[in-house]
């Protein structure tokens, strides 16, 4: 069974592998070609960072607002939830109606969503989504 599945999947993923190879070759060829074809000149003023024509002030690699970090953290909560719900969604419609599996699966999903909703409400009350 497993080997059969692997064989079937392999031939299907073959086209994906070819496409990934072609995409990488395309991107690398473009980057190399444009490097070779264009002129190359450096200069002190030319190498200055563009800041609307003013002399640049300080470095751009500095501390940034913590809000972006919090957004990324709350994204993780939801993304993990969605990833776990995909297998559930593919199985749920085809469960046998004569067993108690559907109600069990629905209960699990609702519990899972409930935990996320708690996190969501907490974040909302904390003002994570408030941008001023």
């Amino acid at each position: 069974m497993l080997t059969l599945l692997a064989q079937e999947s392999f031939s299907h993923y073959g086209a994906v592998a070819v496409l990934i190879m072609m995409a990488v070759i395309f991107a690398v060829a473009n980057l190399i070609l444009t490097h070779l074809l264009g002129p190359q000149k450096q200069g002190k003023i030319k190498g200055m960072t563009y800041e609307s024509g003013m002399n640049p002030v300080g470095s751009a690699r500095r501390r940034f607002n913590v809000r972006f970090y919090i957004v990324a953290m709350s994204f993780l909560v939801f993304d993990v939830e969605i990833v776990f719900l995909y297998p559930w969604a593919t199985v749920f419609p085809s469960l046998s109606e004569h067993s108690d599996l559907p109600i069990v699966f629905l209960g699990r999903m609702l519990f899972f969503v409930l935990t996320t909703v708690i996190a969501f409400v907490y974040a909302w009350r904390k003002g994570v989504f408030r941008y001023d």
């Binding site: 800041e51 957004v71 969605i82």
Partner: peptide, 21 residues
């Protein structure tokens, strides 16, 4: 190493991450 680029990158990350959910 440009402030405009940096701000644009941060905004793009926050936006793409948020709308992915």
């Amino acid at each position: 190493n440009n402030k405009y680029s940096f701000l644009g990158g941060m905004r793009a990350t926050a936006q793409m991450v948020s709308y992915e959910i």
